[in-house]
Computed example of a mutant assay.
Amino acid sequence: MRHSLVPADIQLRWRVWQSLRHGEPELALLPELVDPQRVAIDVGANAGVWSWSLLRATREVHAFEPNPKMYSRLEAALGGKVHLHTVALSDTTGEAEFIVPKTRRGYSNQHGSLSRLGTNGEHGIVRVKTCRLDDMDIRNVGFMKVDVEGFECAVLAGATETLRRERPVLVVELEERHTGRPIADLITEVESYGYAGSAWFNGRLTPWRDIDLKTFHTEAVETPRYVFNFVFRPLKD
């Protein structure tokens, strides 16, 4: 009922406000992280919180969301304002099974992924098109946010040429629980593309090695102190 009565753009603004206050403080860093003259890419756009915020920080946004239900909401809220893509970014181009968890209220809008790791209980499967970001040949990329529930490293593997050519700032969600891999291994894999990683901690961006990730990641899942978004800046040549 709420979705039918409240305009999509108003719903999205409410979500942005909630995320800033209770979810992802990194959104407030966008003026610092985003070059307003370059293109931003939102991988795993979901409801569009990051896409909406990026529109206020830069001139052009590409949003990728393969979940048909969430894509329709994106289109209602941001159609004509951002470049919307229904494909799932990956390290291969073709088709794949997109896993959507099921809750007591039906299929979830959240946590859909190409990764089967962490899939527990009942879930649905949607066949989706996949594509490497490199095959999209998007130019002048200055920023990328990647949040695809454990499939982040595959997305970056399909974007190696883009990362080498464009050197964008990255914000990547990395979680042990979605990958089965130690968080330090995930971070160093992203850094291997020529980046230095940090995270928002104690009110500032902090080098990840200065954070006790056992305490604030591994043991802090779903608590207010949980660190899961990592900012990667390109190293200077």
Rank of each mutant, 00 (worst) to 15 (best):
residue 66 P to Y: 10
residue 57 A to V: 06
residue 189 E to S: 14
residue 30 L to T: 12
residue 42 D to S: 10
residue 37 Q to H: 08
residue 108 S to W: 09
residue 56 R to D: 04
residue 226 Y to G: 07
residue 130 T to C: 03
residue 235 L to C: 10
residue 80 G to S: 04
residue 121 G to I: 09
residue 136 M to C: 15
residue 54 L to R: 13
residue 126 V to K: 13
residue 97 E to N: 13
residue 10 I to T: 12
residue 99 I to H: 10
residue 150 G to D: 01
residue 181 R to D: 02
residue 20 L to H: 07
residue 234 P to K: 11
residue 229 N to Q: 10
residue 181 R to V: 12
residue 14 W to H: 06
residue 42 D to W: 08
residue 96 A to L: 05
residue 42 D to G: 03
residue 185 D to K: 09
residue 203 G to T: 08
residue 156 L to Q: 06
residue 113 S to W: 05
residue 113 S to Q: 03
residue 18 Q to V: 10
residue 117 L to W: 11
residue 225 R to N: 12
residue 86 T to N: 06
residue 126 V to M: 02
residue 198 S to Y: 03
residue 137 D to G: 02
residue 65 E to Y: 00
residue 23 G to M: 05
residue 85 H to D: 13
residue 235 L to D: 00
residue 95 E to D: 06
residue 83 H to C: 14
residue 39 V to G: 10
residue 200 W to A: 00
residue 74 L to D: 04
residue 124 G to S: 13
residue 79 G to A: 08
residue 55 L to W: 02
residue 137 D to E: 15
residue 82 V to L: 05
residue 169 V to G: 02
residue 230 F to H: 03
residue 13 R to Y: 01
residue 2 R to N: 00
residue 237 D to R: 10
residue 22 H to R: 07
residue 202 N to M: 09
residue 2 R to T: 01
residue 93 T to D: 09
residue 96 A to P: 00
residue 112 G to L: 11
residue 65 E to I: 04
residue 6 V to E: 00
residue 113 S to C: 10
residue 151 F to C: 02
residue 197 G to W: 12
residue 41 I to Q: 05
residue 49 V to P: 03
residue 173 E to C: 11
